[in-house]
Design a binder for these strands. Structure first.
Lengths: 239, 239
DNA sequence: AAGTGGTCTAGACCACTCC
DNA sequence: GAGTGGTCTAGACCACTTC
């Protein structure tokens, strides 16, 4: 379990404790955690040690400090942080529409199982989803989620998913996405993808494969997106 | 110049000073900087303050600590850190060959001037370069460099550039690449690119535009690379 | 004025590396 | 054993926010 080893430095132990409390909702996103002095008193630590624990959580993106006001649990803005890397021809940065076309309980595909660290054919929730800008289809997505963690999604009608999935994962399933790895490649469109994207079969599409992880680095979502190459624009900063 | 503002926190001033000394070669890459206590004495600071300055430089990737041994100037491993994002069909991770085909002193193109922050038509060094894996052309690159900072490259024969440019920038011109921004897109190959990549004109190619910056965030290199889409594989970690 | 985080100090002891 | 960074303390004063 994530219970801290007593041989670890004290600021690490406090960091782990605070991380657990944040994850289990002791303080809601946007709320303030206790002042540094209070934490120091209750845990019998020097303020400097508390500060170091908090600093690491700030660096990890879990907390946010505001001078003179306090230290706050950060709202997960992954919709922005992940999707602002996409810039299709529409330069307004408008939020793309998300439309869930299909949802099924399926045994994991070999690739999805391997990526998510599940047993072969473990139960997963599969989503087929289309993303549109100005009503024009841009991305066709296949999404696999471990069925046990995301059971709540089976009760939701497809038209109730909304434009963003990650806030839904958080509010409905208690699963927060903290980081992701993406791999990009190019391939010819197969017939179903071509139909969804309204392009000729065989036209080049960009493939974005994403493995999204929680704060504990556990894989939570495996996603394979295919996008129109002519509208594709992807921006990255390197170290 | 980058001389620190006295109103800044002292650890920031020390950070700036150390960064400048690293950039100007006071300590060579791989060498140790003075111990924390020595820095505290010479700059009349508490050790804790020195530690904070060093911590930020470690976080920025300029320094590296080794417990019990000292704090060292990090060797720039940009060959790895930048190019390991590329994984073409050759999965061995073999270093691609780099071949400079042409080098000219040219007035900057409008796009290059804008990206590099130069005056229109400012003098630049332009390189045409081909990258190959197993003798097979993979990437065709156009590279623009500000002529003043990279003057030393005009004396070098094209076949003496070697496979990696960034170590050359550092050793010959004293210019270190610290970070980069890349934008990916897809377009049809024009005739010259198609010829270099040995593909049919009009075939889809991946375009990677890269602006590389020094430690002081100054733009140093603007690069436009076109790659065979069928061999393209690009991997990114998001936060 | 009271409460918060931001900076800085001065010193203690521990853990690792090298000789 | 000497020298390095790693952890931790206890306290001071500053800057910002809120009342």
């Amino acid at each position: 379990m994530p219970s801290s080893d007593a041989r670890l430095p004290r600021y690490q132990q406090l960091r782990d404790l605070l991380a657990t409390q944040i994850a289990t909702g002791t303080w809601k996103p946007g709320a303030a955690i206790p002042p540094e002095q209070a934490l120091a008193d209750t845990h019998d630590l020097a303020v400097g040690t508390v500060r170091k624990a908090i600093e690491t959580l700030v660096a990890e993106g879990l907390l946010e400090k505001r001078q003179g006001k306090g230290t706050f649990v950060r709202r997960a803005e992954f919709a922005n942080s992940l999707f602002r890397f996409f810039r299709f021809s529409d330069e307004t940065g408008a939020l793309p529409e998300g439309r869930v076309l299909n949802r099924k309980l399926l045994p994991a595909s070999p690739q999805a199982a391997a990526q998510l660290g599940l047993a072969p054919s473990a139960p997963t929730i599969w989503l087929s989803r289309l993303r549109l800008i100005n009503g024009e289809p841009i991305l066709a997505e296949d999404i696999w989620l471990p069925a046990d963690r995301f059971a709540a999604l089976t009760d939701l009608a497809p038209d109730q998913f909304g434009d963003l999935l990650y806030p839904l994962y958080e509010s409905l399933c208690g699963q927060s996405i903290a980081a992701a790895e993406e791999t990009l490649s190019v391939e010819p469109a197969d017939a179903p993808a071509a139909a969804l994207l309204q392009i000729a079969p065989g036209t080049s599409v960009v493939v974005i494969e994403r493995l999204a992880r929680g704060f504990d680095r556990q894989p939570l979502e495996w996603r394979r997106s295919r996008g129109r190459a002519d509208r594709f624009r992807y921006r990255v900063e390197i170290r």
